[in-house]
């Protein structure tokens, strides 16, 4: 056997030993999820803050449901269910996406690049970690708010819409956070992006019906894509399951997810080029 033959054989051996993309992604996702849950400072705010705000606002603004124009037969807490999920997912996805920045800072990202790991798996492994947490958050929030009056009238299909929307939104926000992290390599830059997202959320129907907002603020809120998504998801909570409204919620969040993924992919590719 010549040297060339033996080299080819060993190359084939290495090639067969490299696990498929899905397995690599699953392995990196498992690492991301474990790492995320091992750091309570990353996931506790995404659970505690939205619930705390819901508890305060539902008590403080409960009489808002008496205002003409407020959705009929709906308590303020029921109105808030979707915004609690959206807020929680935003907190969690930013923290989860920011973990890519930590990987860049501590050198793990570079080590992955030098290993025979599929490059998309590096990014998708990180973002998929956020999917699991988002689905968990949506189910947890629905479970906690239900006994206090935050009933989801759409039943199981309605809850399923909320969970899928949460996963899509986590992809969008997590992708943006990961992309920003890959671009700057600075966790502070990613954290600084949170207030912008929060402003975007505040200028939507997340906390109050847009029909009851006046002037230019109402106009912005009505034309904010987050309003369309939230209204579609809220329909499942306060009215019942409806396919058209579900498609609206999932369609908008799906488009946002694709945009987030596109941004993250372009920025991570750019970093790969720099690293190479």
């Amino acid at each position: 056997m010549s040297v060339d033959d033996s080299l080819e054989t060993s190359a084939e051996h290495v090639h067969t030993a490299t696990p498929p993309l899905l397995v690599q992604t699953a392995a990196l996702s498992t690492r991301a999820i474990r790492g995320f849950f091992r750091q309570p400072q990353l996931w506790i705010p995404g659970i505690v803050f939205p619930l705390l705000l819901a508890a305060v606002n539902s008590s403080s603004l409960s009489r808002a449901s008496l205002i003409p124009g407020f959705p009929p037969d709906t308590s303020y807490l029921q109105f808030l269910v979707v915004s609690v999920i959206v807020q929680g997912v935003m907190f969690g996805a930013i923290a989860s996406g920011n973990e890519l920045t930590t990987d860049i800072q501590n050198g793990f990202f570079e080590r992955l690049l030098s290993a025979p790991v599929s490059r998309p798996a590096i990014l998708f492994g990180r973002i998929a970690g956020g999917w699991v947490f988002a689905a968990f958050q949506a189910l947890l929030f629905v479970g906690i708010l239900w006994p206090f009056g935050g009933t989801v009238r759409g039943g199981i299909p309605g809850v399923a819409v909320l969970v899928v929307m949460a996963v899509f939104l986590a992809t969008a926000i997590g992708g943006l956070a990961a992309g920003l992290g890959a671009r700057t390599g600075e966790p502070e830059a990613v954290q600084g992006f949170f207030p912008l997202v929060f402003i975007f959320l505040f200028m939507s129907s997340a906390f109050f019906p847009t029909a009851l907002m006046s002037g230019w603020y109402g106009t912005i809120a009505e034309n904010n894509p987050l309003t369309w998504m939230i209204d579609g998801a809220r329909y499942q909570v306060i009215v019942g399951f409806d396919l058209t409204e579900a498609a609206k919620a999932l369609g908008i969040s799906g488009v946002l997810a694709l945009l987030g993924l596109w941004f993250a992919t372009t920025q991570v590719r750019r970093r790969w080029r720099v690293a190479a």
């Binding site: 603004l61 009489r63 808002a64 008496l66 205002i67 003409p68 124009g69 207030p195 402003i199 505040f202 200028m203 906390f207 109050f208 009851l212 907002m213 006046s214 002037g215 603020y217 109402g218 809120a221």
Partner: peptide, 21 residues
């Protein structure tokens, strides 16, 4: 600078209908 600006606009804008209570 931004936070008081944002809080004033956001609270007054989003919850403008509270005065109807």
């Amino acid at each position: 600078v931004i936070m008081p600006l944002f809080f004033t606009v956001a609270f007054a804008g989003a919850f403008s209908a509270l005065v109807l209570i």
